[in-house]
Write a protein that binds this DNA or RNA. Structure first.
Length: 313
DNA sequence: CATTCGTGAAGACGAAT
DNA sequence: ATTCGATTTCACGAATG
């Protein structure tokens, strides 16, 4: 049964047999106890570059690092068994102590570890892609360095950071959703969000989001592609005039969808779009009335009647 | 009956003072 | 810090089909 042992299953130190799976870094030598690698190596892609920053930062070495762990997942401890019998053993004892201190003993590190696990929990309960948690973790580190998080509620700070991170990655959730998942007040979330958004060095929040709201709402209420396209069309057509200023993007998106559904005779109840957009029917009514008051919606059955753009400038 | 529409009062928020 | 204006929400009733 030894014949199917290949080269990689031989211990490089003593020539003994390796137990386990060396491909995943989980193997150790039967004879001398040598551990091939103490890390579990993800055999998948070593890193994913979501943006330029990631491309610069990630190196093609070692197990994938992640900002979501307080030591970036690269923590290791100096083995007690190795070298401890040599004359320099005391040196290693000292190193071991220092390493322990650096890893978990400083208050900053401890709170960081706690905050990052809070972030991870929040992101997973909101079903967000892992990149959101990673960005959130990076932001948290930034703010901790600047002393922003000191003496502030961890749950509120982390919630606000996740909220911001979701915006950055264009998987925005409503303030209500995030605050519920974090177990804090919506008002507190917004307060901390404002503070954090101004402190964190986030270059550009991705553009205004009415179009994205339409796409998101269309997605969650399973709108027909036809209606979604029409809703977008309506928004673009009405965008130029002043009626959109200062209105909530949600309301605009909901109104466009509602109008589109009526035109396509899908006739969604206002209640449904309002519910999906997390606003009230009244707001939907206001927006859609404004749009109808200012624009003539051309019936598609009689396209020859009206002209395309009555409002050139 | 369900849905839609209109309205005043009230809360929340941002801008201006 | 307070005031003011606009927006959104709530609560209600009426109109529509």
């Amino acid at each position: 049964m030894d014949k199917d042992i290949d080269e990689s299953l031989i211990c490089k130190i003593c020539g003994g047999r390796l137990i386990g799976d060396p491909e995943r870094g989980e193997a150790f030598c039967e004879a001398c106890g040598y551990i091939l690698d103490e890390h579990i190596i993800d055999p998948g892609p070593e890193w994913k570059a979501f943006d330029i920053e990631d491309k610069e930062k990630r190196v093609r070495v070692g197990s994938p690092i992640t900002p979501t762990l307080h030591d970036y997942g690269i923590g290791s401890e100096i083995d007690y068994t190795q070298d401890s019998t040599e004359s320099v053993g005391n040196k290693y004892d000292a190193l071991r102590i220092w390493q322990k201190r650096l890893r978990t003993s400083s208050p900053a590190e401890r709170s960081l570890a706690y905050a990052l696990s809070t972030i991870n929990n929040l992101c997973s309960s909101l079903k967000m892609p892992s990149v959101v948690a990673e960005t959130a973790s990076r932001i948290y580190r930034q703010l901790q360095k600047k002393g922003i998080v000191k003496s502030r509620s961890v749950s509120k700070v982390t919630a606000a950071i996740v909220y911001l991170s979701a915006k950055i990655h264009e998987v925005e959730r409503s303030a209500k959703e995030v605050s519920e998942a974090a177990g804090i007040e919506v008002k507190a979330l917004n307060k901390y969000y404002r503070m954090i958004a101004s402190e964190a060095s986030v270059d550009h929040l991705p553009l205004p989001t009415v179009e994205k709201h339409i796409a998101r709402l269309a997605n969650i209420m399973k709108l027909s592609p036809k209606t979604e396209r029409l809703a977008l069309q309506i928004f673009k057509a009405t965008k130029s005039i002043s009626i959109h200023d200062g209105k909530s993007p949600n309301g605009l998106a909901a109104a466009c969808i509602y109008i589109a559904s009526v035109i396509n005779s899908e006739n969604l109840p206002q209640r449904e779009v309002a519910l999906a957009a997390d606003i009230t029917e009244v707001t939907v009514r206001h927006r859609y009335k404004e749009i109808l008051d200012n624009y003539v919606i051309r019936q598609k059955l009689k396209p020859q009647r009206s002209v395309n753009n009555r409002d050139a400038n």
